[in-house]
Amino acid sequence: MSDQTLRQWLLSDTPTSRRHARMAAFYKGWLSFRGNSMAMVGLGILVLLGLVALFAPLLAPYSPFDQDLANRLKPLGTEGHILGTDSLGRDTLSRLIYGSRITLYIVALVALIAPIAGLLIGTIAGYVGGWTDAVLMRITDIFLAFPRLVLALAFVAALGAGIENAVLAISLTAWPPYARIARAETLTIRSSDFISAIKLQGAGPLRIITKHIWPLCISSLIVRVTLDMAGIILAAAGLGFLGLGAQPPSPEWGAMISEGRRFILDHWWVATMPGLAIFTVSLAFNLLGDGLRDVLDPKDSGQ
């Protein structure tokens, strides 16, 4: 199939199969997303980040852990250390490159755990209703009422410092908004005609929730997740900065800022570079999230 006919097939007004219709809708979404240049910039940065993380051993000029005390605190642009070195003579660029793996790891895990937990709780509350709904939503409200960072701090205090515990703590504070969204979607879907039709065909609650309600909740959850990613990155970096996330010598960006903090007045670049990295990635997620919201959820695009 040539490019031209593939395009025509995708833009056809009369889809011939369910798969065809789905792909056509996806393609139209992509076309409108592609027109949003800021969102494309965000997507570009994130694709680049993914590639950097994937090929870190090939891209990094040095190991992120190799100390070289003769070359400590070298400024930017030093021969062989383009972004300088830290207080133990480790190459900043190499540490940033390896650090991208940790950032992506944290974001990916939280972005899996929190929305799935929220989806489960929200759809059950919305579909079952009654007491279950009241109790589940009250729990959601309690978690929502907590200041997130402080709650995460308390959880990390209880669980012990470390990346996995930081992920768990952030997820525990991040799920309530997803539960709310999923519940709201479920409430509108559950009373619609097609659900009654499926019920008449004998479908049980499990089948209705997993096969018919979840797929319809996904798009609003995706938008919310993308917009939350920046917050997740900032929270993880904050925990790392406080010494409660990734532990040294791990090249986590927040922890790197914390190491560089002691030298900020004389050797500013040590803390500045990882901060720029965090800023770039969370900005990219914000741009992408804004663009996705316009495509997937035009009703609240704030326009």
Binding site: A230, L234, A237, G238, F241, G254, I257, R261, I264, A271, T272, P274, G275, I278, F279, S282, L283, F285, N286, L287
Partner: peptide, 13 residues
């Protein structure tokens, strides 16, 4: 946009 994306502790430094 910058406000939502900037790590506060870094901006402080």
């Amino acid at each position: 946009l910058v406000g939502y994306s900037m790590p506060i502790f870094w901006l402080g430094l």
